[in-house]
Design a protein around this nucleic acid. Structure first.
Lengths: 204, 204, 204, 204
DNA sequence: GATGAATGAGCTTTCATTCAT
DNA sequence: AATGAATGAAAGCTCATTCAT
């Protein structure tokens, strides 16, 4: 007895388009990636793409949801593990940097497309609607750390800004070839800095 | 005896264009701001604008240099003061958030135009060429903190990523109306988090 | 003993398509109505529609024939009655205005689709081929009026232009909300004007 | 001392575009005439056309105004003459048919573009806004005829529908090659029919 | 320096029609 | 008969940039 439905042919194609467009958007930007670009990279006609997504904006929004869902899922595994808080930070930083290296399009889409082309997401992704799954998991991580007495109890967004801004900043510097070492080698330092910033004084 | 050259008529107009274009780019994005938009906002013709800047990209690069120079200058004042390291952090965070509030176009240009439309700055702003002045001052701040024994001696970019990523993240959250309090009220928490992240264990 | 052939399943579906497409064309125009629009309104697929009509143009031509046939039939009843000429005019004007009110798509198709998108009917409806039944009945009405001595003997198309142009004009004005009164209240005035225009001097 | 301003270069070009587009629209219809078509017929680029008219719809609306103004002006001369009512009808019918023959695009635009593509004129030409000058002159003609006791006093739109519907109908039939004689030869019959339809019983 | 008409390339999107299933 | 994914052609429109004036 199968737990999951077999995805339909059409749904599979949708996913292919999302993956292909994600790559192009992340690499070249929203406005410099054209619909024909995307279609060509998938070996389909531009017109046909509109049978799957009614506009370029809607496509970008679906991608955002998809990326948020993927990253959220990965963080959930960390949250569900029984690592100590300090190690959870390391894990999250690690998976973030690793993703940035192995599937850079995901993180780049977050940093470059979502954060910067607000007008594209204004209608349809208000507030955190499309980025919900990701933010929720960070929130869970933080709340549990506080509950355990490992992290100082401060406003969530102060901690969230630190966490995400920091990671984003490092990935950006890496992408700009401005880091002397490869990104993953910063996991220790970065996690340490985050932990120190957020931990309670008594925590080691 | 004049210290500075009187800026020529043409140079003044250039500065006006930079200021006007900065506002539009920051508000609407690079690709969604048109040259006619900029010209109109300055009461001049689109054609004439090309007498001052040879292309839209070059204009954006000039703006970047100008913003970097402005922010660098403001941080230099902090560096040149004899505040303790902890207070310097507070000052820098404070001026950053204040700028984000009072002249949001500067910070927004950094976050939204520069960080995200890499192709625009690829040729002409390689590496840090155009953000030199800004980065240099952060570096000076950091090196002095280390020299004084206040900050742990770690790789600069680890600290830089934290500092700038964090501030950028907070401004972004503020811009998205996701912060419960106005941005300046986060100065304490944010500075404290940064200080804790970077300080030597013995420092108070 | 059956008088009429039972229409085949396929023929029934054809009629449904004609009726549905008529409505859409009349309401939105030929070029602004798409084949998918029509298919959707009938709960069928766009592809399948092509099993019934080989092109959008051919569909429009079939509709025209169908409308002409319907209106021709209604006028025939009037012609076959033994009303005096003056009353026949009233009846025809009345049924035209009534149709325009109750089934506006018919008249609108005539006025807006047929009269204006000539290129659509150029090949396949040359001359009067597709509006034959309708024109014929008007012609019969006119010839009989002349034969009875009620109407002046003039060239048919002079009279036809008056009759049809006038009625079309009134319906158009009504549709544009430019008439102070509802269309049917103009039956008297309009019939009177037509009668006066066409009658022989001695007729009352 | 000149009474009229010399039209600017730009205004002249606008007029050329209006004239050129009028021809194409009238000949081929609104949707089957493309902006590139129009531009090509004027030896200019499609892009440049948008420096004169901000959209295809707006262009069509300007054309409508222009046609209405032209026809209105010609009817005004008739109204200002001291011909008897009967002769005025002849004159108006004559100039209408003559225009339909010599500059068929004007009348065709009225009949085919304006009357049938309502959605194009919905916003911008509500009610009679764009067709004002023309309708006004017909109204003046009619009111004067009534005032002189030549025409029966009936609701204006009853008479207007007759007048314009009839003329439009005849031009349509002519355009469809359905009239045995050339259009101008119908002037007598048509004027006579109109006059009879509208005149007071005592008028000869 | 200044204007703005002009260009040309390209973009998003639509749609009639086909065809494998 | 029926579906709907797929195509290809084209349309309306925008815009950075140029250039004659």
């Amino acid at each position: 007895m199968r737990e999951e439905e077999q995805p339909s042919k059409k749904e599979q194609r949708r996913q292919q388009i999302i993956a292909g467009a994600l790559k192009l958007f992340a690499r070249k930007g929203f406005y410099t990636t054209t619909i024909p670009d995307i279609a060509r990279s998938l070996g389909m006609s531009a017109g046909n793409l509109y049978n799957y997504f009614r506009s370029k904006e809607l496509l970008a929004q679906e991608i955002l949801r998809s990326v948020s869902s993927y990253l959220g899922r990965r963080i959930r595994y960390v949250n569900e593990s029984d690592l100590p808080t300090r190690e959870k930070i390391r894990s999250i930083v690690g998976l973030y940097f690793e993703t940035a290296l192995r599937e850079p399009e995901m993180i780049d889409f977050f940093l470059r497309i979502y954060l910067s082309n607000r007008e594209v997401f204004r209608e349809g992704c208000e507030g955190m609607v499309c980025v919900n799954e990701f933010v929720t998991e960070i929130m869970i991580f933080f709340d549990e750390g506080v509950a355990r007495g490992d992290l100082r109890n401060q406003e969530f967004f102060s901690a969230f800004g630190l966490f995400m801004g920091y990671l984003g900043g490092m990935v950006f510097l890496g992408g700009e070839q401005m880091l002397p070492k490869p990104l993953p080698e910063y996991v220790d330092e970065v996690s340490e800095n985050i932990y120190r910033a957020l931990k309670t004084p008594e925590a080691s």
